[in-house]
Design a protein around this nucleic acid. Sequence first.
DNA 1: TTAGGTTCCGAAAACGTTACCGGTAACGCT
DNA 2: AGCGTTACCGGTAACGTTTTCGGAACCTAA
Lengths: 342, 342
Amino acid sequence: MNKPATIKDIAKQLNISVSTVSRAMRNAPDVNNDTKKAVMALAEELNYQPNRLALSLRQKQTHTIGVIVPNLDYVLSMMVRGIDEVALEAGYTVMVCQSNESFGREIVNTRRLLESLVDGFIISVSSETKSFEHFKKIQERDIPMIVFDRTTPHLTAPTVHLDNEEGGFMATEHLLEQGYKRIAILAGPKNLGISNSRMDGYMNALKKYKIKPDPALMIHCDFNQDYAFFATEELLAMKKRPDAIFTISDRMGIGASLAIKKKGLTMPDDIALVSFNNEPIVSLVTPGISSVEMPSFEMGKAAAKLFIETMHHPEDMSGVERIFKPKLFIRESSQKSLAKKL
Amino acid sequence: MNKPATIKDIAKQLNISVSTVSRAMRNAPDVNNDTKKAVMALAEELNYQPNRLALSLRQKQTHTIGVIVPNLDYVLSMMVRGIDEVALEAGYTVMVCQSNESFGREIVNTRRLLESLVDGFIISVSSETKSFEHFKKIQERDIPMIVFDRTTPHLTAPTVHLDNEEGGFMATEHLLEQGYKRIAILAGPKNLGISNSRMDGYMNALKKYKIKPDPALMIHCDFNQDYAFFATEELLAMKKRPDAIFTISDRMGIGASLAIKKKGLTMPDDIALVSFNNEPIVSLVTPGISSVEMPSFEMGKAAAKLFIETMHHPEDMSGVERIFKPKLFIRESSQKSLAKKL
DNA sequence: TTAGGTTCCGAAAACGTTACCGGTAACGCT
DNA sequence: AGCGTTACCGGTAACGTTTTCGGAACCTAA
């Protein structure tokens, strides 16, 4: 009914020009104090809200960051909170879109946000994504873009991610130190960078301990609990079954642990388990599952900071990488001494 | 560097007017097929992306829904996914802002989105919120607003929520049926509607079974795991301690279970536990925790549908309520027979 | 008095798009 | 020949804001 008040309404009522009102609102120096007060007062009274669309159209920037994530699981929602935190601080609004791990949705989201809705992007690529044309379109337009968490070599952009290789290495070395020899790995889809890096770490650790990797113990499966469950069942059905499993995510770790329990085996005696992410859940199940932690919140903050930096100095930020270090939390699922204490 | 192409560029290059280009892009009927093709082709070539800001400014609508949630925990992120789902389908983009359970952040977020960035709101109020002026400002401007999950009587708007009273009743009655008599409740802050409703259900169940509620067993504490832990410790330290606890969320349930374990008590024999939300985690801990489930995803979808309905028929939708029914999942923490089987 | 500086304000263009109103040309019909 | 339709297309205002330029009014100082 009652149209929202505009700068024009205020101008008319006060018998001054819109430019003056505009200046007064922004507290510009060249406007009389009395007029300023009058404008402010009337704005308050009319419940005036500036129209950001007009502003953005005018100055060709929206002060909005488009964040595209594959999901809002524990880790990513932590990261988003981090992004939110510093973005708000810096005067940006964030627009979160989840692609649901779907390539198609990712494209749609990108296209939408690209319609002048955002000043730039902070993205984490979906596990389904194999082609990166939609992201390259962003770069062709010289629009800032940060890739975080799920990074990829196919995109040259400032990135924030974990040292996943190190994480994979730590997890595997820990198992080796505990004396496990046949260590299986449950990895994600082959095109998923974080999965591959973690697997590289796994390989490195095996190499260091002079153990020949066994392809039969290296499983690629979908990035979720159910697939991990089935994959683990198969692993456990092998004639020479593994004595330890490293899963690339906690969800998968949970799936694996369920399969282990179902088979009637116990951790860590019959088989050990280490997973990744260190979500709260892994400390609550019995036995507690060892897991590699990533500083999600901090990484989110770093991504946003990097974004803002890029906004200010777009010149060759493209190589910048912020790499965070993982931390291994050892629990009963992988340490015999700990388990015996119980 | 290379400015994004506009409708004007296309017009100039094709020697036609902007209006024609505009019509061609929208596939309007009154434009020659050849020109249409030419426009489309050139648009493709120039990598033209329409400018939604201009469009929105012109037609005074943004096709964006502002979603304000207190956090992105399991339940709410499920709901957001539901909202996303139907919103995208209906041609809307959603803008998710988390208030982090902070009143101040909620206000800031509302103000930002109110600056003509969204066509309307779907909100779930923060647990800290006691005043609702910022939300009423939305309504004063005749902007559609749906309240979901965390609803409140202070706001008259179309709502989507769980039958929380029923949920509280189910949980409590289940405990009573199992023979528990001194049932404590761990509730949230006193101003939190869902908490109060669940507590009402609790009261109703006690009444039905002719048990006099004991104020000493009704604890209000912060909506998280740690506070629940401490509150439970106090409960267990009572001379006449409760023989069952109903917690109003799974996080709190986890906190309670940890306190119970620490004290050396076992569930369900020494004490029973039922919580709320039925997050995956409650089925994974030992003993499994009984919990009341809400159809989060469906509720999110319903909220978005209701929003779209409201957009189309704003007239007196204000009374509409979509109430979903909870479902109790019984696990070892509260059913003696189940526990004995293990 | 006049020159020069301040202080305050207004007019108008611009951002990219759509919507409204109109116009022209070609065609067919009487 | 004259008229009405039809099929296309163009000009322009408008959306709400900022920005640039300029100018009026006043003050100060020589």
